[in-house]
Design a protein around this nucleic acid. Structure first.
Lengths: 338, 338
DNA sequence: CGATGATTCTTAAGCCAGTGAAGTAACCTC
DNA sequence: GAGGTTACTTCACTGGCTTAAGAATCATCG
C-alpha cells in the first residue's frame, strides 16, 4: 500500500486529523506525510479545516473534501432500482429510485438513471469517479453512462459502505451482516473486503432442505421466506410492522428467526475474530428491533465469557440503502488504493 | 510486501522456477527479478539447479537452498514436548521428543532441548534463524537458548506449516483444521495466517453446554472427549486404533463426531471461501480414515451443487508433528516477510 | 558450420518515494 | 519579547524499481 493510500485511508478513518497524527498512525515519517499531504491538497482531495492547540504550534487539522469527488452506487433490490450519489467521505448527496427493469442490469436504463441523478444533484460529470453496482444476480455491464463500473455482491458492497460510513479503522476486523431478500455477509480484514457465505451457514445439522441443496442452512431455517408465515401479511416489511405494533405470531416468527441468526452471527464472530458487527440491509432495517437485541445479547454473552475483546454490535443508520451506498464506496475504495 | 519477499514466496510455492516465471508470477519486471535473485544467490538462500529448454536460451531454474537456514519448532502436546528442526523449505531435518515439563514453557528445559536438537543434527548455531513455539496454553518465553522466539496457537501454526509443506500458492485461500486435545483451525488469506475459533462453532443450537459456557459447540458435541466413550478404551488414539481394526462402538463414536465436524468444516469453507482444506494434528492423523472421507464427502457435495470452485480436502502427510513444523515455519515466514 | 531467430537474463541510466537531519513557523508562558 | 515547545517544511540522499538496450545461450536451417 502506497503512502498516499495509507494517508488517505487514515484520514478517512480518523478525520479530522493532523499531520503528526497521520505520521504516527501510518508509520511514515513526518516528512513523507508533509509532502504527500501537500499533493493531496493541491489535487483538492483534502482540506485544511481548523487547528487544535498542542502546547507548541497548533496542529492543522485535515479532512477529506466531501465534494471533491463523487461516486454513484446502484442497487437493484427486487422491486426497484436505487441510485445513490455519495461524496468522497461516503455521505449521501442525492438519491433516486426507479421501478425495476428486466434484465436487471440493462445498460440503457441504468445510464438514464445515472444521468438523472447527476443532473438532479447538479454535479459535473468530471467529478464523478465511476459507478458501483451491488449485485444480487448477474454481472453488470462494464460501462454505464460512460463511467467505469465496479461491482460486488450486495452484502460485500454493504460491508465496504459501512467501512466508510462508520469510519472503521483499517486494522479493525469487522463484519457486516446483510438482510435483503436473503441473508449475506461481507467481512473486511486488513482493509480488504471479502464475501462470506452467511446465508448457508448450517444451523441445524438435519434441518429442512435449502434451495441450495444443503440441509439446515440459515436461509432455509430462518430466512425471510420462513418468516412470512403462510397466514400472515404479505411481505417481510408487513410482518415487521405488525410485529412492532403488537405481540403475536409475526413477532414470534421474527424472534424464532433471530435466535438462529444470532447463533450464526456468533459463528461468524468466532471464526473471523472480528470485534465489530454491523447489521444492515432493508431486512434488518425493518426488523432491527428484534434482530438487534437478539444478536447483541448472544454476542455480548459469548464475549463476556470467552472472547473478551469487547465486540460491538450496531445497526447501520442508513440500512435500507446500504447496498447502494456501499456500491459507491467500492469506487471510492478503489481510487484510494491506487 | 517487498520485491525480495514476493520473490522468495514465489520460489517457495513454485520451485523449481525460472526468473521469467518469477517475473510473471510476482508482477515485477525481469530486471528487478534478476537483481534481487542475484542478491539471494550471493546470500546463499537460493540455488541455481538445472535448466529447462524454452525455444531460445534455456531457463535456469531456481530453488531455495534447503540447508541454507534452519529453524526450530516446539510443540508441547500434553504428554510430551516435540522439537523439530526444519530447513528453509519446511522439510524436517531432525526431531526429538522429551517428556512434558511443568510449567509448560519453562525456558531452561526448552533451551536444553533446542541445544540437543541442534547438536544431534550437527547444525551450526549461526544458521538457525530462531525458535517457533506452537502454544496451547500460556505464552512462551521471549528467548530460548539465545534465539528469538515467535509463537502462535497450535492450529494457526499448523496452518502456516501446511502452507509451506504443501507449497500453497500465496493467492490461494486455504484453511487447516487441527485436532489435538481439542479442535482448532487456522486460515491463510493473502499469505496471512489467522486463527479461527473452530472448536466453538455452534453445531447444535440447543446442544449440551460446553466448558466455554456456550451451547452446542463442536467441541462439546463432537470433541475428542465425547469420542472417548465411557466404556471404551482409554485415550483417543486407542479408540481410533480399535475403530480401525473392526466396526463397533468406537467406530460409531468416531463416525458420529465426523458428521458434526464435516458440517462445521462446510461452514468454514463457506464463510472463508477457501478452496483447500488440510486436516492435520495428531487427532486427525490417528482417525483420518473416518474424518477424511466424511469431511471430503460433505464438502464435495456442497461444492458440486453450490460453490463450484473445486475445493480440495487433504490429510497432512506429517499430521502428528504438524504443530511443531508449523511453529518452525513461523520463523521462516517472518524471515521471508522482512 | 555459421547466420538467424528466439528467448532468457543482465546491465546501465534514470526516476520517484521515502528517510534523516536540519531549518522554519506558530503558539504558549513568563 | 525572549525562550520553550511542538508542528510542519525543505533538501540532499538513498535504494528499489522501471525502461531500454545489450549480452548470453540455445535451436534451426540453409
Amino acid at each position: 500500500m502506497s503512502a498516499r493510500a495509507r494517508i488517505l485511508d487514515a484520514i478517512r478513518a480518523g478525520e479530522p486529523v493532523s499531520r503528526v497524527e497521520l505520521a504516527r498512525r501510518t508509520g511514515l515519517t513526518e516528512a513523507a506525510v508533509s509532502t504527500t499531504v501537500r499533493k493531496l491538497l493541491d489535487e483538492g482531495l483534502v482540506l485544511e479545516t481548523g487547528r487544535s492547540p498542542s502546547g507548541g504550534k497548533p496542529r492543522t487539522l485535515l479532512r477529506l473534501d466531501p465534494a471533491a469527488r463523487v461516486a454513484v452506487g446502484i442497487h437493484h433490490d427486487g422491486d426497484r432500482i436505487i441510485y445513490v450519489l455519495t461524496g468522497q467521505t461516503g455521505g449521501v448527496l442525492a438519491r433516486l429510485a426507479t421501478p425495476a427493469v428486466s434484465p436487471s442490469y440493462a445498460a440503457g436504463p441504468l445510464a438514464d438513471g445515472v444521468e438523472r441523478l447527476l443532473s438532479v444533484a447538479g454535479v459535473d460529470r468530471d467529478r464523478c469517479l465511476g459507478v458501483g453496482v451491488a449485485t444480487a444476480d448477474g454481472p453488470p455491464p462494464d460501462e454505464i453512462a460512460g463511467f467505469p463500473v465496479l461491482s460486488q455482491d450486495q452484502a460485500t458492497a454493504a460491508a465496504v459502505g459501512a467501512y466508510w460510513v462508520e469510519r472503521v479503522e483499517p486494522e479493525r476486523p469487522f463484519a457486516a451482516l446483510y438482510l435483503g431478500t436473503a441473508f449475506g455477509a461481507g467481512v473486511v480484514l486488513d482493509g480488504r473486503a471479502r464475501p462470506a457465505g452467511f446465508g448457508h451457514v448450517c444451523v441445524l445439522v438435519d434441518g429442512p432442505e435449502c434451495w441450495c441443496g444443503g440441509r439446515g442452512c440459515l436461509e432455509a431455517v430462518a430466512g425471510p421466506r420462513t418468516v412470512i408465515t403462510s397466514g400472515g401479511p404479505a411481505g417481510f416489511d408487513a410482518v415487521a410492522r405488525q410485529a412492532r405494533s403488537a405481540p403475536g405470531p409475526c413477532r414470534e416468527a421474527l424472534e424464532a428467526s433471530a435466535g438462529y441468526v444470532a447463533a450464526a452471527a456468533e459463528t461468524v464472530v468466532n471464526l473471523f475474530g472480528v470485534n465489530l458487527l454491523v447489521l444492515t440491509g432493508p431486512g434488518f432495517a425493518a426488523a432491527s428491533f428484534v434482530y438487534g437485541p437478539a444478536i447483541a445479547r448472544r454476542i455480548r454473552a459469548a464475549d463476556a465469557r470467552t472472547w473478551k475483546r469487547s465486540v460491538t454490535v450496531t445497526v447501520s443508520p442508513a440500512a435500507t440503502i446500504a447496498a447502494a451506498t456501499g456500491a459507491a464506496a467500492l469506487i471510492l475504495q478503489s481510487h484510494l488504493t491506487r
